[in-house]
Design a protein around this nucleic acid. Structure first.
Lengths: 368, 368
DNA sequence: TTGTAAGCGTTATCAC
DNA sequence: GTGATAACGCTTACAA
């Protein structure tokens, strides 16, 4: 690795001159020094000089590094690429770097096996992505480390940034009302009935989405109808979708809000199998990150703003870093945006290939 | 932050003694020094001492940090959490850390906007996760940086680690043969017909899986049958699944290998809608990472070993780091493992709720 | 504008 | 087993 020393020797000036020139701390108004500065830069380029960030860090007293902390158990952490994107953009803008760290279950109970990044604390702050509602011990554990911390995709009473799932559910109801829907049901496969221990490991949206739905329906003076199935880790639950749709069929809904995208996909698949056109006969709406690969044109969605969540988390972290007295901030929810279903929900190719509508018989869900 | 100096002052010994004790470089066989060492450790603990990794790095001449490089465009990178897990485990084992970095398209063409980690090169090596087959310029770009580099989930003629998709497809055929299947079709929705420019942006598995299938079928003396649909970014393509199943229905397959999990899920959904029992009437097999959430009990799969891919990538990177003369290594594919469908493929709950089988009419795919 | 010199926190060397 | 001393690469008063 090229050092300032080598460049100094090559150019015949002192080390600190090289440092100053390369950091742009000379005004370079006179021709002589300006020429010399140009020569220094040229040689630095020729030698492929890169500043040694460790040496710089040791002088500046900062690691210029933020840890992104996820849970060792996959389902206890959730972040789309977008969240990392937003985070990285903002962090890079401040000249910092993102270090991926993992926190395993037993590392919290046995401090002997603390992960390296906590043993060494070689970062300036934490962005935590542990989305389950565990007991407060974890949060207190982070409070003990003298580092600014921001929680992402997690709702708590302070220091957190998360998509406004409650507001999104409300807006979904309002949008559907605006489209003329009056009988809007809510279907989810991953809510737990009770407030038992297991429920504590669920993402806040599992509570907030149905709550937002219920509140908005009540505010609109409309009757709510909810069908819940117990959680299962499967990507498609056609059996759940089928039985949930049957459960509310007699109620004749014209729109359904699904708890998440796979659930919406399951519902759509079952609707198709029954010859119900989506969204023409039955609107399906849900919540989804803005990932191209998840595009489901027939399904309306509130788009979860994970890029902004990441960006905002970084903003708040740097604010904490620059104002060490500011110890915590109130919870921040980021608004979701409405993405209506494409009008060509059922693709011509499928319509043509589908079973003749009369064979599926069941039409109870169709609107008059 | 507590430093060695403070501990030295507190205990009344020299800085380097503290350093030695804390690094366990004293044998501590005599009682006197052993007691003193204990006292030093105690005070270090009391003061909350953490080694300054920057200072250590500057002394050791290493950043103790590996960059994980992903592409700024989401679809050009792909890594499950498992890959990161395997990588982190191995990296942490060597006392290194993982820095997340992103490479955007225009940063490659305009060197002015090089990302910080490449401008500063403050890592010891690169683990690259850019899975599209772009032109070689990117690979050459990395070769220019004097850092060991390993490519993951990417097949190339050197310096890469990836799941053995070709072998997995072969094994899928062999396993299905072992179960008595003779008419095995291959269905995929994301292969491009030609070798055009767009195809260069595809993952290697899009080629390797059908190729492995074709080779194994030929080796078994069985006729191949392939149905391909053009790529679309949607999570479910029931229309594709429907038309592809129709296309090969007359051939009367007893098993289908799907190009990936969403495709398998689409096929299963359509099979269900038609009253075809999976896997009893029609076996569906595919390729999938070992993520709990993707469990689809009725579908057989070759499990993609991403944890090992990550681990192996780290292994190879550290080998390169420790033997700087070893400039490159031949491509390494990691074997996948067979995960058969659960026998209770169609859940009783669904069967009960499903349309009566006679209404769907279409039984062409059933085996005699 | 430039050079000298000190110092950041740590580790390695080498006499003791 | 210990401690003085030097060194890692860089930044920055301060004096020239």
């Amino acid at each position: 690795m090229t050092t300032l020393k080598e460049i100094a020797q090559e150019t015949g000036v002192s080390i600190c001159t090289v440092s100053r020139v390369l950091n742009g701390k000379n005004r370079e108004v006179w021709p002589g020094p300006a020429q010399r500065a140009e020569r220094i830069r040229k040689i630095a380029r020729k030698l492929g000089y890169r500043v040694n960030t460790s040496a710089r860090a040791i002088r500046k007293g900062s690691f210029h590094s933020i840890a992104f902390v996820r849970h060792g158990t996959t389902r206890f952490s959730w972040y789309p690429q977008e969240l990392l994107d937003g985070l990285e953009d903002e962090i890079a803008h401040h000249g910092y770097r993102l270090a991926m760290e993992r926190l395993d279950e037993q590392q919290l109970t046995h401090p002997r096996t603390l992960p390296r990044f906590l043993r060494e604390l070689s970062v300036d702050g934490f962005v935590v992505n542990i989305v389950c509602r565990m007991n407060d011990s974890l949060i207190k554990a982070f409070a003990n480390y003298d580092r600014p911390t921001v929680w992402t995709n997690f709702r708590y009473h302070q220091d957190c940034v998360f998509p406004d799932d409650f507001g999104a559910a409300r807006e979904l109801v309002e949008r559907l009302c605006g489209l003329g829907h009056r009988r809007i049901a809510y279907i989810a496969f991953d809510s737990m009935p009770g407030k038992d221990e297991e429920a504590q490991s669920l993402h806040y949206s599992v509570e907030d989405r149905p709550a937002g739905y219920a509140q908005a329906m009540e505010a609109a003076g409309l009757p709510s109808r909810v069908a819940i199935r117990p959680h299962s880790g499967q990507v498609l639950r056609l059996d759940y979708a089928d039985s949930a749709l049957r459960e509310i069929a007699a109620w004749k809904p014209t729109a359904i809000i699904a708890g998440n995208l796979p659930e919406a996909a399951s519902l759509r698949a079952v609707a198709r199998a029954r010859g119900i056109s989506v969204p023409d006969d039955l609107a399906i709406a849900t919540f989804a990150p803005d990932i191209e690969a998840l595009a489901l044109s027939a399904i309306s969605a509130m788009v979860l703003p994970f890029r902004q969540v990441g960006k905002r988390a970084a903003d708040l972290l740097f604010h904490k870093l620059n104002h060490r007295e500011a110890q915590s901030f109130p919870p921040e929810s980021v608004a979701c945006t409405w993405r209506p279903a494409a009008s060509t929900g059922d693709m011509p190719g499928y319509i043509q290939a589908a079973e003749p509508a009369e064979t599926s018989g069941q039409k109870t869900l169709r609107t008059p």
